[in-house]
């Protein structure tokens, strides 16, 4: 069993996002970079499959040197090897999916696990696109996964319920919160990861079709208003405002 976990480096959810002067990209100063939270579920699931029945887990990301941090972390958590596809992490999910697909070609992977979306872009597209390019089956937004005898059984979150999907391997599965509880790296794992090498491959050759034209933050929230007067007056004024301005009545 050979599993590829595709990870994306994303800004920490607590980062205060700023738009760069070009008006269409993220200002990288003061941004703390983390592994995409949904990708963490994907990685944890791969490690659990490995622990349960034996599997080779390869972690992969697309990006520059900075993205190696994500791979280092994956190695510390239990990935057997790591691959950096060098190239600018593109705004175009199709370009990313093509890069990953061409890496996978002929390598005999049985399963690709990845987060159902990267946070920030929220396209939720790379997983399904990858499956389409490869001609593999896929299940996305998965909260429970079983893999055995060359097939998978996956519970997907759907509106108001669960859907169970079955299919043969190889397949692409994207992880949703609830799939598992990701672990912390052990000290032993961290030290071992530092001794492993990260394979660097040229990820170019899949030109982006899409690019960001503009990036804007939500408008700033207007200042609050203070209602003055004695309690009765305040209550009356508040009621009036709720009726006239907020139109809740």
């Amino acid at each position: 069993m050979k599993i590829l976990v595709a990870l994306k480096q994303v800004p920490d959810t607590e980062t205060k996002v700023k738009v760069a002067p070009d008006g269409k990209s993220l200002d990288p100063t003061d941004v703390k970079w983390i592994t995409g939270p949904y990708d963490e579920y994907a990685l944890e699931e791969a490690i659990r499959i490995k622990e349960a029945g034996g599997a080779e887990v390869v972690a992969l990301t697309v990006g520059d040197d900075r993205a190696k941090e994500v791979l280092r972390n994956a190695l510390a958590l239990g990935a057997d090897s790591a691959v950096l596809l060098k190239g600018q992490p593109s705004d175009d999910p199709l370009a990313v999916a093509k890069m990953v697909a061409s890496f996978l070609e002929g390598k005999g992977f049985d399963l690709v696990l990845l987060g159902n979306k990267g946070i920030g872009g929220d396209n939720a597209a790379v997983g399904p696109m990858l499956a389409e390019i490869l001609g593999w089956g896929h299940a996305n937004v998965v909260v429970k996964l079983e893999v055995k005898d060359g097939a998978f059984l996956a519970d997907r979150e759907t509106e108001g319920g669960l859907e169970r999907v079955a299919g043969p391997l190889p397949a692409v599965v994207t992880a949703q919160k609830g799939l598992n509880e990701p672990r912390y790296a052990s000290l032993k794992g961290i030290m071992a990861a530092k001794k492993k090498t990260i394979e660097e491959l040229d990820g170019a050759g899949a030109p982006a079709v899409l690019s960001n034209a503009a990036l804007a933050l939500p408008p700033a929230r207007p200042d609050g208003r203070k209602i003055e007067g004695d309690p009765a007056t305040q209550a009356r004024a508040l009621l009036q405002l709720l009726k006239d301005e907020a139109k809740v009545f």
């Binding site: 912390y184 790296a185 000290l187 961290i190 030290m191 530092k194």
Partner: peptide
């Protein structure tokens, strides 16, 4: 060392 910094970071994160 890098190793010590990594341990410190892991401890801080947790």
């Amino acid at each position: 060392t890098d190793d010590q910094l990594a341990i410190q970071q892991a401890a801080r994160d947790f």
